[in-house]
């Protein structure tokens, strides 16, 4: 397996996942109220939650309806 073959996946994957992470973190930090849980909890979930699961959980369960 050569690294050149993996790069076309790794780079966009990293970009996408970091975008997701950035959007979620930005959203968590700019809001003070959540449907459930608190800021620290959601930051941990979003950062630790591997790949996309953390951010998805946040947007499904934590984000307040406006």
């Amino acid at each position: 397996m050569n690294i050149k073959e993996v790069l076309p996946f790794i780079i966009p994957l990293i970009i996408a996942e970091f975008t997701l992470l950035a959007i979620s973190i930005w959203h968590i930090l700019t809001h003070n109220h959540y449907k459930r849980g608190n800021r620290i909890l959601w930051l941990i979930v979003v950062i630790v939650g591997m790949e996309f699961i953390g951010p998805v959980l946040y947007f499904l369960l934590g984000k307040e309806d406006v």
Partner: peptide, 28 residues
């Protein structure tokens, strides 16, 4: 403004990349 569209776009892109990535990694 709720960020829903951005999340969905990134998520579906992720899924799009994962499919060939998994295929590519299978032999390895």
């Amino acid at each position: 403004r709720t960020g829903r569209l951005a999340i969905l776009l990134v998520l579906f892109s992720l899924f799009g990349i994962m499919n060939p990535a998994v295929a590519k990694l299978t032999p390895w």
